[in-house]
């Protein structure tokens, strides 16, 4: 616990923490304002998923924001957060300050990884809250029409939105873990961030071509939209479980390798 507390204090003392969160919060607000003010309302199938539903029901703002941000902005924030974990401290020189204390490297790494995921999670919670509040103020909150055509209450709808965000976070945890691994391999957080982001974009590109369809179930990036299945009636669980199993396998694999590298790493920074 002391590891976690220390890492949280460090995150709260960085200005970038708040810049990152502010940037995330801005997105649903911008989306709401843009849809409200535009005379030419987006039609179904236009723009990111759920965008066309927003004007009729503010409940769709957090869902549209999640769909819109899942492919670039959230991966970017996740990559930057994860990449800072070890390499950022190496750049500051504080990695050696930290590791000349009687602490286990495993504890340090796991605490940093957990706090990085928490950071992304809190950022996503802000997005959900900002989206819900903006949607409520501008479009009003109404019972949610599911993808199957039925309706669920506002409270039930918020439950589904929360689950969708948690699933989105599980996907982002893969990117955080990938960035943490790269962060243990280099002393430059920028290199780690760019590396993680490029890998994510490459995986996404692979998913775009039908030739690589056989790979698709195994790429974590192919499951970023699987939370849509939460909005069916009844909820279509099998793709959701598959996605969660894939995310878990990636997270455990990546953080396992990161641990193995960091355990014996020579700290020369």
């Amino acid at each position: 616990m002391s590891h976690l507390r220390r890492e949280i204090v460090k995150v709260l003392f960085q200005r970038r923490t708040y810049v990152g969160w502010a940037g995330l919060v801005a997105i649903p607000i911008i989306m709401t304002v843009a849809v409200r003010l535009s005379t030419d309302k987006p039609q179904a199938g236009e723009g990111p998923a759920f965008l066309s539903n927003m004007a009729a029901n503010g409940m769709f703002v957090p869902l549209a924001a999640l769909a819109a941000m899942s492919f670039f902005l959230l991966p970017l924030v996740s990559a930057m957060t994860g990449s800072y974990v070890i390499a950022g401290e190496a750049e500051l020189g504080t990695l050696k300050t930290l590791l000349t204390r009687p602490v286990s490297r495993t504890g340090v790494l796991l605490a940093k990884w957990a706090v990085a995921i928490m950071y992304v999670g809190v950022g996503m919670a802000f997005v959900a809250i900002a989206g819900a509040v903006a949607g409520w103020l501008v479009f009003g909150l109404h019972p949610l029409t599911t993808l199957s055509g039925g309706q669920v209450s506002v409270a039930h709808g918020f439950g589904l939105i929360a689950l969708a965000y948690l699933m989105g976070l599980a996907g982002m945890a893969c990117i955080v873990s990938l960035a943490v691994l790269l962060s243990t391999l280099t002393d430059s957080s920028l290199t780690a961030a760019v590396g993680a982001l490029v890998l994510v974009l490459v995986l996404q590109a692979l998913g775009q071509f039908s030739y690589f369809d056989f790979l698709k179930p195994y790429l974590f990036t192919s499951h970023f939209e699987d939370w849509f299945n939460l909005l069916r009636q009844p909820i279509s669980w099998p793709p959701i479980w598959k996605a969660l199993v894939t995310f878990t396998a990636y997270v455990l694999g990546l953080i396992g390798v990161a641990w193995w590298v960091f355990r014996r790493k020579d700290i020369l920074s």
Binding site: F13, L92, G93, K96, P102, V103
Partner: peptide, 21 residues
Amino acid sequence: RQEALKHVGGFVDIPAFYPNM
């Protein structure tokens, strides 16, 4: 290492700290 470092204080190279604190 962990047991040993309980009895040691010091620094190596240029001491580095968290600049915003």
